[in-house]
Design a binder for these strands. Structure first.
Lengths: 250, 250
DNA sequence: ACCATTGTCCCGCATTATGGGACAAATAGA
DNA sequence: TCTATTTGTCCCATAATGCGGGACAATGGT
């Protein structure tokens, strides 16, 4: 099934680099130009890719993967359904924006967002993903992994970055994670340069493994540590209710 | 590139029917069991599909397409970026939920949602798609297509359904579309049995062709025709601003 | 005006997908 | 409980198809 693998690799890279030309793309995935070209034409004929008109076409994704991704979320494990009403209550109780993310390999994937009453100014698009340590809910998941899994993650410096260049020492991160685990939530004040703060908690499957995260986010000048701490009980309770709802399903 | 086409067909159908067994799936896409089985294994190895453990595995999508779809939206035509701030203003002015949809073939695809201050209770997931006539923004697009394109759509009864069974007579729909075009917006009170009402307007590319739609939605007991009419100027102005923003790009 | 780069296509070779069929295991039915 | 049906998995000979080097013209940067 080699062509399938190559085609999917092309889709993946085009998603990342679009709009991109054929030769450039061929260089990125280290394949002969002719092969990439053939794959692009095939993917176009199946409605997954499109190119702008012109002598040097640039390729982009069509909306097809969006629809497919949407359906994937919908039927996936029932998490979204189980979480929605809880998320809505939470946003009404707190006025802040609620995010629901899914653990996906070594990333956190944003599945659903319910906007707060109070404005934040930034709206993360569903489908965004980022490193686990970057978000409060990601660190809440990290803190609740088994010791082995945790060590596995922390081994690579990639997963210990606070920003592009700033790597967190293992000891410091371990200490924070221990605290997070004990409290049941993680906080971020003014994360990653953006002017938003957040507090996150993990959601567990029926075997007790963390697989998703729930977070509350708001403008950093409104939410400093004391305010975040005050929100914690509501958030933790909401995450617990979602975990319970998931456990009841099939 | 036959295997690629088959693999994508499998992904598409699995998204629709998940969780589904191999034999069942083979019947749906009219392919030999052996072929489908091989494709499933391949797609699993590339991380696009997964199966639950057990003697009769059921296949589902992984979150991979979600991430890809998300990136597709992000870089796609800049629509989302151009629309966000306008959508945010709109929700603060009106308190209602704002939806941004993209015309995709004969469907409307939900790209972004900003939740209103007032509760609706239902949250359409990004990635949902539906027939053009079902949503107010879809009908706003329909109304602004060229006469030829419009005739093309209305020829098939599929696109004239108010519900599963209720088909709108061509004359009636044409009359409504003419009115929508003149006013610049379409309204739906209590659409499709759900308890929400909405008002929608079209967004145009720089050639003047409608390619996306903006809508305001709220609970039907709060938004009847008079209230919707009162919201119209704000919505139409917002859609116009997004169209202008798009025209300035590139 | 030059020249490196790009998009596109061709074609002989060899790799690879194909799908009927066989089998065991699991479910549905009685 | 026993039987009939369906399901998941695998094998294999045959035919089909993807492969990628290379050639060419069009393009655009300098």
């Amino acid at each position: 099934m080699r062509p399938v693998g190559l085609a999917l690799a092309v889709v993946d890279r085009v998603a990342e680099l679009q709009p991109i030309g054929a030769s450039d793309l061929a260089r990125h995935i280290a394949l002969p130009k002719a092969t990439v070209h053939r794959l692009l034409l095939a993917l176009e004929s199946y409605g997954w890719l499109e190119r702008d008109a012109g002598p040097r076409p640039r390729w982009s994704l069509t909306v097809k993967p969006i629809g497919i991704g949407g359906r994937a979320i919908e039927r996936k494990s029932g998490l979204r359904m189980a979480a929605l009403s809880v998320m809505d209550s939470l946003r009404h109780e707190t006025g802040e924006t609620v995010h629901l993310g899914l653990l996906h390999g070594d990333k956190m994937l944003l599945i659903e967002r319910i906007d707060g009453i109070k404005s934040v100014g930034i709206f993360l698009p569903v489908g965004t993903s980022w490193d686990l340590t970057w978000s409060s809910s990601g660190r809440a998941i990290l803190a609740n992994l088994s010791a082995d899994e945790q060590r596995e993650f922390l081994r690579t410096p990639r997963y210990r970055r606070r920003s592009e260049t700033d790597v967190i020492p293992v000891g410091e991160l371990m200490a924070e994670l221990a605290l997070v685990r004990e409290r049941g939530f993680a906080i971020s004040v003014g994360i990653a340069g953006a002017n938003s703060s957040s507090i996150g908690a993990a959601i567990f499957d029926r075997h007790g493994a963390p697989f998703a995260g729930l977070s509350l986010s708001g403008a950093v000048d409104r939410l400093r540590e004391p305010e975040l701490m005050a929100l914690a009980p509501l958030l933790v309770e909401a995450a617990r209710r979602i975990s319970m709802g998931m456990a009841l399903q099939v």
